[in-house]
Design a binder for these strands. Structure first.
Lengths: 66, 66
DNA sequence: ATTTAATGACAGATATATATTGCATTTATC
DNA sequence: GATAAATGCAATATATATCTGTCATTAAAT
């Protein structure tokens, strides 16, 4: 399912998908697909996204009920 | 680097790499390499491991200083 | 001393995460 | 309403996560 928490965290920092992608070193599409819930990213990418947005894995990628 | 926290959580549950691998639906080698820190697992696999061991992503895969 | 279970290491094959490019659609701004 | 920016969508190409199989080593059990 969609990753709303990631989208919100990105909004907090006022970053476009493109800008976040650049900071994290991946393509815009990769970020877009993760937000749409159509991707299964690697742990390292998740960590990089977390650091770029000052969040932890649980903050952005953990869903208690799933 | 090695994932000691994963190894400890597995020990808590008294599971071999093989047993954890079966519960999670991957091969023994995959679990072994993750513990050795030689793998970059996918988010879904990380989540499955967490659930099998009653932990969260931050518990097993988040390292504050890295 | 032998057997067995658990783990580490390695090589080749397959599945899939990610890149790249291009186009369509929405939204805001002028 | 035309332009531009942000986002979704799709196809092909590449890198890499994961599988399968095999062997070596260690530790535990008999």
């Amino acid at each position: 399912m969609k990753n709303i928490k990631l989208k919100m965290a990105r909004a907090e920092h006022d970053l476009s998908q493109q800008e976040l992608a650049e900071r994290v070193g991946v393509s815009r599409q990769t970020i877009g697909l993760i937000e749409l819930g159509k991707y299964n990213p690697t742990l390292n990418l998740c960590k990089a996204i977390c650091k770029a947005l000052s969040k932890t894995l649980d903050d952005l990628f953990w869903d208690e009920d799933e």
